[in-house]
Design a protein around this nucleic acid. Sequence first.
DNA 1: TTGACAAATGTTAGCGCTGTCATTTTGTAT
DNA 2: ATACAAAATGACAGCGCTAACATTTGTCAA
Lengths: 335, 335
Amino acid sequence: MKANLSDVAKEAGVSAITVSRALRHPDKVSKKTLDKIMSVVDRLGYIPDPAARALAVGKTNVIGVVVPSVTNNVFSDVMRGIFETSEGSKWQIQLGNSRYSPLEEERLVRTFLSQKPAGLILSGLEQSEATSKLLMNADCRIVQIMECGPAPYDMMIGFSHIEASRVATRHLLEKGYKKPGYIAARLDPRSQRRLQGFEEVTTAAKLYDPARIVTTPRPSTVTLGCELTADLLSKAPDTDAILCNNDDLALGALFECQRRGLNTPNEIGICGFNDLEMMAVANPAISSVRTHRLQIGQQAMSMMDAALAGPEPDPSVIDVGFEMSARESTNRSAK
Amino acid sequence: MKANLSDVAKEAGVSAITVSRALRHPDKVSKKTLDKIMSVVDRLGYIPDPAARALAVGKTNVIGVVVPSVTNNVFSDVMRGIFETSEGSKWQIQLGNSRYSPLEEERLVRTFLSQKPAGLILSGLEQSEATSKLLMNADCRIVQIMECGPAPYDMMIGFSHIEASRVATRHLLEKGYKKPGYIAARLDPRSQRRLQGFEEVTTAAKLYDPARIVTTPRPSTVTLGCELTADLLSKAPDTDAILCNNDDLALGALFECQRRGLNTPNEIGICGFNDLEMMAVANPAISSVRTHRLQIGQQAMSMMDAALAGPEPDPSVIDVGFEMSARESTNRSAK
DNA sequence: TTGACAAATGTTAGCGCTGTCATTTTGTAT
DNA sequence: ATACAAAATGACAGCGCTAACATTTGTCAA
């Protein structure tokens, strides 16, 4: 019932390989036969079988994407960028959710590699030993996203998390906060580097106090932001600012402070991370570090496309940076 | 360099087909040879080539999932459910983002079908004419998610959006609100049915006023919730409650009302839709209609798995319902 | 007109796997 | 020991496509 290459070939009065060429390398076929073939393809509604092609060529059009979470706002933005940019191209995006587990990531990479993908997009700098080995020997292009660091497998796009949190911490200190705390959930490597940036800067300013750092392995939610804030404030009631590992927590922190009648920013400053759109419209508007999530997704896909299409993309490592979005929630002098 | 079936066969001293059987139908192979083959498989690190298998069998292990948005919280929860439940199974999830466009959905369905997938998971009741035709003739199982309605292609899991908004609207009326408004963004078919439920109930109660309905095709955000609320309040300043098409808008509505010094719930009630976790911790806590998004994803995948594994899943159409989460933001008498 | 070369098209074989059917081995009852 | 069925294994072909090489056709200059 479904037409295949030789059906089209027969109908067009040419050989199968000519049809194949017409479809894959139209410039290798004369205008006349090309037209004829195309009209037959249309008429028969022919659609090539990707499995047969994959078998013959030893490669697929699959680009595997491994993200640690599909619900996290950060990665949904990245994913959107990837999907948008791949649209219309021949690349077939295949998504895997590693749930922040290096082992699950390894399993996914294995599955993807068995499909002989054209490319792989992975999150972060560190993979399990085994995954690393797989990737080194992989016969496909690789883009690492979210972070910038040394020794990429291939290509890379992201920013420095430690530098971003240094900037946010300095912002709090500049605003005059003297007893800054830190709350974090789900300490993946990137979160840990952000915490590290906070510790560095506060230590240098002689304002470091481990009692003001509250973390949990639980996944981040707004509700958890409330709980961590409550925790922090019970352990160290004199805390005058909270740097939050992400915006969910920051919103939760704000809600919790409101509930306790603590004025933000005067009694307590709050700063988030990522700068989700809602930060700007909260009351008070919440300061945050803007990260370029959509752009990371888009450019990761563009780099991949470029690398697969032809000449090497230049550069192959991109630091997209970040910006401090200072708002009311840390503007102590205001009001 | 990479081992294939016959490498394993040679090494194990059997024929290729026996290795194939050992892997696919272990019960058709004697214990002794099975053990030998498995040890060789391990030693050689043999991984079957899915493309070759697909070509031989005329079917893949792919399950295509088409969602209208990868950033929308609703669908990220659904996706999480699907990914979680598929983990460990042989099914390979492939995700497509239709961006709420029936044409893009059609393109995706075409691409998926060309891969001879085992199954397809689609969002919503209505597809383009062409998509419908494709799906009717498709040689794979289909699960429609998010909504329940008549005439499923195959299987279905969701809830009644119109009934859900009727319940929410009645909740507002029961709480004594007399001039309820409605704000909505991105009017997909499901949003439209929710609006319809609101219109029905307010009309029946003789409280319907088109001036209190503000909609936009723009994608939903918290910021947009602020804007739509501002719009609504400028058009109909005496509005005493807002039913929001989703929780992003509801949070925006709350922020905007706070900014205007309007007390929620006394001067203005606010109700959202979906009941994202953050609704419960806002100040005041925001009423919403809880929808079972994770469950929809999980069960959609279970149904699919069951249908592909063996006997027909029963039932093949599931209404997971919803619950009204009444909170402070609509509790007029409180405080 | 002819030869030389490029462009266009065709032939053949094979990618790695599994369905079908044929054959061999094993187990069981007489 | 024999007969017979059931279990286990194997030979072969083919899924639909494309790389590599082979052949034909077309073009142009001498």
